[in-house]
Amino acid sequence: MAARIMAALACILVMLRLSEAAVYKVGDSAGWTTIANVDYKLWASTKTFHIGDTVLFEYNPQFHNVMRVTHPMYRSCNTSKPISTFTTGNDSITLTNHGHHFFFCGVPGHCLAGQKLDLNVLLPASSTPLSDPPTSSSPPPPTTIPAAGVPGPSPSHAASPPSVMATRIIAVVALLVSLAFTNFAS
């Protein structure tokens, strides 16, 4: 009986840990663009990013790209030596450590027009990165990158939107607890 309860509790802890990761589409429905006049600074300030979260850059690759850059490059929109460049139009990047992550579009004029993003990943509750296993219908596995390791604006303390996964996990947890107590009472 005690073994069942311990197994149920272990499952609960694993599921809660997995539910912490979130996926954020940069720019929400507008995506990564200059046309919709998205304020990416405002967009990022409404999110709370954690290690294991994924940011998804969706854009037309004929007109845009995504460059990960250092803080000085970000400030000056310098495209000369990016840390990495993404060009698929559907780029998933998993955030693997805390600190600021700097991105912009490297197409001339786009960064200066505001197509730039500073994500601040909060200090982790634990040091283990999170990742969901890919499924056969999912896009290519996300790219993982470390933070730029430089100072930036203060972190956002806005709450992340609730996820469907979290709701499912809560339901499973309730079921497991109910089964544990039913078996315990028997």
Results as ranks from 00 to 15, higher is better:
Glu20Thr: 06
Ser80Ala: 14
Pro153Ser: 13
Gly149Met: 00
Ala159Thr: 10
Ser178Gln: 06
Thr79Trp: 01
Val172Ile: 13
Ser131Phe: 02
Val177Cys: 08
Val69Trp: 00
Leu56Ile: 10
Pro61Asn: 15
Ile93Ala: 11
Gly27Asn: 07
Pro153Cys: 06
Leu16Lys: 01
Met67Val: 07
Ile51Ser: 00
Ser29Val: 15
Pro61Tyr: 10
Ala7Phe: 10
Val69Asp: 04
Thr143Gly: 05
Ile51Cys: 00
Cys105Arg: 03
Pro61Arg: 02
Val172Glu: 08
Phe49Gly: 10
Ser156Asn: 02
Ser127Met: 12
Asn183Gln: 13
Gly106Asp: 00
Ala7Pro: 07
Gly106Glu: 03
Leu13Glu: 13
Ser154Glu: 12
Leu13Asp: 09
Val26Lys: 05
Ala166Val: 07
Ile35Glu: 13
Leu179Pro: 00
Ile51His: 02
Met165Asn: 03
Arg168Ser: 03
Leu42Glu: 07
Pro139Gln: 08
Met165Lys: 04
Lys25Asp: 07
Phe184Asp: 11
Met165Pro: 00
Asp28Lys: 13
Asp132Ala: 13
Asn60Leu: 14
Met67Gln: 15
Leu122Cys: 06
Phe49Ser: 09
Asp91Thr: 07
His110Trp: 03
Ser29Ala: 15
Asn97Gln: 14
Glu58Trp: 07
Lys116Leu: 05
Asn90Trp: 14
Ser126His: 12
Leu56Pro: 03
Phe57Met: 12
His157Met: 02
Ala185Asp: 05
Leu119His: 09
Lys81Pro: 03
Ile5Ala: 12
Cys77Ala: 06
Phe63Arg: 10
Leu130Asn: 01
Lys41Ile: 00
Ile12His: 12
Met73Cys: 06
Ile35Val: 11
